[in-house]
Simulated assay, not measured.
Amino acid sequence: MAVKPDRAKVLQKLKVTDAAFRGLTRAAAIAVLVILGGIIVSLIHGSSLALGQFGFSFLWTESWNPVTGNFGALAPIYGTIVTSIIAMAIAVPIGLFISLFLTELCPMVLRRPIGIAIELLAGIPSIIYGIWGLFIFAPFLQTTLQPFLIDVFGNIPLLNSLFAGPPYGIGMLTSGLVLAIMVLPFITSISRDVFEAVPPVLKEAAYGVGCTTWEVVRYVVLPYARVGVIGGVMLGLGRALGETMAVTFVIGNAHRISGSILAPGTTISATIANEFTEAVEDIYTSSLIALGLILFAITFIVLALARYMLMRVQRKAGA
Rank of each mutant, 00 (worst) to 15 (best):
G69A: 13
G72S: 09
T80D: 07
T144N: 11
G259N: 09
E104Y: 09
T244M: 09
L262F: 12
I39L: 11
L310M: 14
A31F: 05
F97E: 10
F300P: 02
M309W: 07
T285S: 13
I230A: 10
L102R: 08
G292A: 09
G23Y: 02
A263Q: 11
R315K: 10
A27F: 00
V198E: 00
I289T: 14
L291C: 08
V194K: 08
R111V: 04
T213N: 12
E278D: 13
G165K: 10
V229Y: 05
F21G: 06
I40Q: 04
L149W: 08
G210E: 10
V10A: 11
L51E: 03
M245Y: 01
F195S: 02
Q146D: 08
A306D: 13
L120I: 15
F71W: 03
V229T: 04
I298Q: 02
I272V: 14
F148A: 10
T25Y: 00
V233N: 06
I283V: 11
G95K: 03
A297V: 14
T285H: 09
V183C: 04
I251R: 06
L36K: 05
I128A: 10
F54Y: 12
S175P: 00
E196R: 13
V3Q: 15
E243I: 02
V82I: 14
G95S: 08
L241Y: 00
L14F: 08
T244I: 02
Y308A: 13
I98T: 11
R312P: 00
G46R: 04
G292W: 03
Q146P: 05
